[in-house]
Amino acid sequence: MAVHEGLRVQGRVLHALILREMTAQYGGTALGYLWGLLNPMVAILVLYAIFSNMHRISPPGIPLLMFLITSYLTYNYFMAAFSRASGAVQANTALLNYPQVSPLDVLMGRYILDALTYTLVLLIFTIIGVLVEGPYWPLHPGAAILTFWSAGLMGHGLGTIVGTLRPKIRSLDNIVSPILRLGFFISGVVFTAHMLPSWTLPYLDWNPLFHITELMREAWFASYESPFADFSYVGLILFFMTGAALVLERMGRRWITE
């Protein structure tokens, strides 16, 4: 098969998978999709209600709602990408009977749909934040969006690894889900690195998600500077994680049917 023919089939498969995912996930209606978009808003509003009545948690110069949007939404994207990727292959085993659909296509379809959806969510929430709190547009939009997508890619990579190993290691979910739940508290979602006791930082700066939330703030707010955020560390983790996910996915294809 010629290369361009192969690419055409690949494009068709991805297009069909994305449309199928939209129907399966959001019921195929505009209203369903809109609800999916606004779903994270509920959590953000609850956090906003709680924290605005306590003493402020966002650092000086950073309004609370925008603070929560940049950190919580990024974390939420990671978690959503993780759970969607880890369940992707199991949810779609039926489709793997089609000769041109591979598990990797299913994963790519979900990744593309999630990236488009969450980018749209970020845009909508930013506009809402600006309407409520004033023109806090991102200082470096390019860096902000790259960091945001890194969160999704990381969730997707980790989800692919967990989803592939699940048929082999039955108790994997029991190990991973408590760690991820803890992740909310050690990834700087509701506090910044400056608010933590300094002795914790050498431990917490191993956590790539903490780097991502800190990088997000740095890219967004002129007044914020993180004590440790480093994009090259995030990039390195992403590189190895994506590589491991791709290799494992290829190796794990026969485990699905066993």
């Binding site: 055409r8 089939v9 068709r12 498969v13 069909a16 449309l19 199928r20 489709l95 089609y98 659909v101």
Partner: peptide, 9 residues
């Protein structure tokens, strides 16, 4: 059926 039609162009 729509999904199948799409992947076969």
């Amino acid at each position: 059926a729509r999904f199948c039609a799409r992947i076969y162009g």
